[in-house]
Amino acid sequence: MSERFRILIAKPGLDGHDRGAKVIARALRDAGMEVIYAGLRQTPEMIVEAALQEDVDGVGLSILSGAHMTLIPRVVHGLREAGLEHVKLFVGGIIPDEDVPALEALGVSGIFGPGASTEVITEFVRQRLAGS
């Protein structure tokens, strides 16, 4: 039997469009994962706290607001401070190409923009969570 992955899906910041986050959450559920859906308007601190309490293997953030270069580093540092450096971080939303290297350097495992298919995303997430 394969391991049962747990993943937190959250929307940090203030933009209120959670359709994408819900679509991904559902796709990951259908891929057999236990998805903890935290929903809208999460602060980085709330996300780290939920990741800790739920003992997740991964965190998926949906950001459409353009605040990713502010929010993601705070989540990354928060996870590290909480002793959760093993938790894989995925980001979806509107992320300009020029920001990608910086985010990858921070340790973000996967970045997905508009048009990425749910099949590609779930397979990628599954492989990363399985440690490859």
């Binding site: 559920r29 236990e34 998805v35 601190e45 709330m46």
Partner: peptide
Amino acid sequence: PSSPFTGGAMLGDRVRMRDLAG
């Protein structure tokens, strides 16, 4: 609930419990 077909689950109760954060 877990899905009886895939074993996956959508755990959404935290959405209503954000006041308890921190």
